[in-house]
Write a protein that binds this DNA or RNA. Structure first.
Lengths: 212, 212
DNA sequence: TCACATACATACTGGTTGGTATGTATTCCG
DNA sequence: CGGAATACATACCAACCAGTATGTATGTGA
């Protein structure tokens, strides 16, 4: 119109999209989805509104992409990564995961909690697409735990009278609840103590004495 | 100014305040605190903005009053009410509480989760006053559980090698996590199954065989 | 090389928000 | 009984919000 463009560098749509996703994740993690400001995201990403709406049709679509392409990978790596690389019985592997999580708490985790749980609590009653996307991530998480437990049941290291999927769900719920409580209490020791008690619960999943 | 007042009924400041608190609780429960609209609250309460800002200096003050005067009582009644009226050993009393909660799930609890946890996850990193108010409620809840467990330790019905307060915190965390997961999954059976597993964990708090 | 789609950039808009300024009816107290 | 504090009611506002209209520079295939 009146003022002509000043800056135009390279044309890298994939990089622009990534910058948007990362900036959106940061802002949403800090303020929640609804309170997240697109202008703040744009400023941090260093792109303009035109770029945003070229890559994403709505703010909700951006948020869902953050869940699918940022949060999901982050969570599954954190909670299933150690599990996969750990040999031996799954109960010990799960306990190792809990220990690793407790030993590697970041400041952000204590202050801001779990990004997936934050979005779940805020958005699941408000937006069905959001809810489904979050649910898919939770299911992948629970599936990872459940599969490990079933493997243990097959090899006899996990008692067979428990429902692997239900127990997996409980572990995820206890972990999320622990991070949530600790976030409000601003206490990293609260996470550690809770994960330790959860680890004690995992011991009860081992077969009682001798089998058959 | 131009138009003079039309309606003015009785003057009941306490009732007006209560209507505001109730309407605010509903709106905040549904949309979260930040997304809660004062105009919506006003409309549902049937009062005007002048009344609101006469009773509360800011929106945040209204929200904190909702925590202190509505949510806190609701939660403590739900989770400590049965506990207090239940005689016998505290582990059984806690299990009875879990059963009662599982048997009396409301539609709102599944769709919207726990109002305290919602506010905790949304507001604790954003507003220190909010966080402190929520934390006081959580502490009262944990205190109720911890006191019951200590009583059990004193009378020998709860093993003495566990930290009552830490276990109480874990129970609250597991319960909140369960409600949170079930809210996203929109599944009441998920709450029930999780509370049942939590009940199994409570069994492990009983002393092993015979004591001293 | 040139039309055309892609990948942005800029400026603007209508709607909503929490909060305020101001006016007035009611109640209470001296 | 009268003034002052209380308890509202109404109108208004600046800030911010997601989204859009429009323009333009860049890459690409024919």
């Amino acid at each position: 119109m009146t003022k002509t463009a000043a800056k135009r560098r390279t044309r890298a749509p994939e990089a622009t999209r990534d910058k948007l996703l990362r900036a959106a994740f940061d802002e949403i993690y800090r303020r929640g989805f609804q309170a997240a400001s697109l202008d703040t995201i744009l400023a941090q990403a260093g792109v303009t509104k035109g770029a945003l709406y070229h890559h994403f049709p709505t703010k909700a679509a951006l948020g869902i992409a953050v869940v699918d392409e940022v949060v999901k990978g982050l969570l599954l790596e954190r909670w299933l990564g150690v599990l996969a690389s750990q040999p031996g019985d799954p109960v010990s592997a799960l306990q190792a995961t809990l220990r690793f999580r407790a030993a590697n708490l970041t400041a952000g985790e204590i202050e801001l909690g779990c990004p997936l749980n934050n979005l779940a609590q805020e958005m699941s009653p408000l937006d069905e697409d959001f809810r489904r996307s979050i649910e898919a991530t939770f299911e992948a998480w629970r599936d990872g735990f459940a599969e490990a437990l079933r493997r243990g049941q097959a090899e006899g290291s996990v008692r067979s009278d428990v429902d692997a999927r239900q127990v997996a769900t409980f572990i995820v719920a206890a972990a999320e609840g622990s991070y949530g409580l600790a976030k409000n209490a601003q206490s990293s020791s609260m996470v550690r103590e809770n994960l330790e008690i959860l680890s004690l619960f995992l011991d009860s999943l081992r077969p009682p004495r001798r089998s058959s």
